[in-house]
């Protein structure tokens, strides 16, 4: 039994060093050398070096001149991610969906049929960085009006930022909301604040 216990303890200690330590070390070095931007979390900085966010992480947009992100069950808290966990028959969920739909219809002056479900449902992570094209389209006239820019120019900027499904069939066509909003600011300057 003593010998068995020695084997068990030594095996645990060694594999712990190997998989807890060395394995991480190898990947960390590869990250630093080959993929430094990704390894740090795809950070986006301003010209002065301050951090705007991560290209992979949604943030809240409420101003009329910006594309608004998908609803988040965690208020876009990227230190405490997660979904709503609401079932589709949950009355609270249905009430939430209805409330979000009315807000989109009022703010963007569109009919329910134009609103894709992504805009009235919360994502799995709470920080889904993307919207489907239809989800951006319904917001265009509001953004154009707020920024005093022709809608066509905004549409062409969106087209330039749209990602097609990988290889034409993997995943969904989408637009990264943060990157699009930064591109809007770069092209037309920051929007006049409405609040």
């Amino acid at each position: 039994m003593g010998k068995e216990l020695r084997h068990a303890v030594a095996f645990t200690a060694l594999t712990m060093l190997l998989f807890g330590g060395a394995y991480h070390g190898v990947l960390w070095v590869i990250g630093r050398v080959a993929f430094p931007a990704q390894a740090e979390g795809s950070v986006i900085r301003r010209a002065d070096g301050t951090v705007v966010g991560s290209a992979l992480v949604a943030q809240r947009f409420v101003e009329r001149g910006y594309v608004h992100s998908r609803p988040s069950a965690v208020e876009y808290d990227a230190a405490s991610t997660g979904p709503s966990n609401n079932g589709s028959a949950n009355p609270e969920q249905i009430a939430l969906e209805r409330k979000r739909l009315q807000a989109v219809m009022a703010e963007d002056d569109v009919k329910a049929a134009q609103v894709p479900s992504e805009l009235i449902t919360a994502s799995g992570s709470g920080i889904d960085p993307d919207l489907p094209l239809a989800g951006v389209d319904v917001q265009v006239s509001r953004i154009a009006a707020a920024r005093h820019v022709p809608a066509a120019r905004i549409r062409s900027l969106i087209a330039a930022h749209a990602d097609a499904p990988t290889w034409g069939f993997l995943g969904c066509a989408r637009v990264n909301v943060l990157e699009l909003n930064l591109a809007l600011n770069e092209a037309f300057g920051p929007p006049p604040t409405s609040h």
């Binding site: 609401n86 209805r98 739909l101 049929a113 479900s117 449902t121 799995g124 889904d128 993307d130 239809a134």
Partner: peptide, 17 residues
Amino acid sequence: MGVSQTAGSMEGKEVRF
């Protein structure tokens, strides 16, 4: 509600998938 669900049921799901 008359909302289009071209991508299916999206509560708790991510756009990219």
